[in-house]
Nucleic acid binder design. Structure first.
Length: 203
DNA sequence: GGAGTCAATCAGGCAC
DNA sequence: GTGCCTGATTGACTCC
């Protein structure tokens, strides 16, 4: 499958396809973490495993400042200019809601490349009438939520795979027991196949 | 050391 | 009122 066509799959389509291809496919384990993301993005994320999962720390809380601090460290030229609220004076922030057209264009871009270059970010922001930082945040959140969804899908896939393996195991055990019984009866009637008297395995 | 990314989280707004 | 979605923030981390 090409990466382009893979990217076009909706998550639901993906899980359906993989279930039909994989769960019925015999002994191969399911391809967990079949990427929802384009490959170039995966290459850009070499684990980021240093963080201790589940570790928590205080974030913001009452001292939270909307938009004034971190962007300096991120080289953001787009720190709060007022039209998205968020100043420290306590004025309630008005949340940006993307239009359907904006969302569609972002989605289209995400499917093409889920990581933006600087130029792509600028261009996209220009087309959308948004700040580059807002485009960046949208992609960031989109990646995070895509990954979360993929994890949930993988989890479900593994659960079903496990169920199937258990069923297969039970069936094979039944068949083995039946076969042994038949052969042992046959053996007592002169068959050339016999079972080991100590372990009942075929001799 | 700066830039980019991620995980975790907060918080506004909408549907129910 | 609650739950969900989603834009935004923050600190840790990786890479060059």
């Amino acid at each position: 499958m090409s990466s382009a066509s893979r990217e076009s799959l909706e998550a639901e389509e993906l899980v359906d396809t993989r279930l039909s291809l994989v769960i019925g496919a015999g002994s191969q384990p399911p391809p967990v973490q079949a990427p929802l993301l384009p490959p170039e993005a995966e290459g850009r994320v070499p684990g980021n495993t240093g963080r201790k999962k589940g570790e928590k720390w205080i974030v913001g809380g009452s001292t939270r400042q909307h938009g004034k601090r971190a962007r300096a460290a991120h080289g953001g030229s787009d720190v709060d200019d007022g039209d998205d609220g968020g100043d420290a004076a306590g004025r309630a922030r008005k949340k940006l809601r993307l239009t359907a057209e904006q969302a569609a264009l972002l989605e289209k871009s995400f499917r093409a490349h889920n990581v933006l270059s600087h130029g792509e970010k600028q261009d996209l922001a220009g087309q959308l009438g948004l700040k580059p930082r807002q485009v960046e945040v949208w992609f960031q959140n989109r990646r995070a939520r895509t990954k979360l969804k993929q994890t949930e899908l993988d989890c479900e896939l593994l659960r079903r795979w496990c169920e199937r393996l258990s069923d297969d195991n039970a069936r094979l055990r039944r068949e083995l027991a039946e076969t042994r019984a038949v052969l042992l009866v046959g053996g007592s009637k002169g068959s050339t196949l016999t079972g080991c008297p100590s372990c009942n395995r075929l001799a």
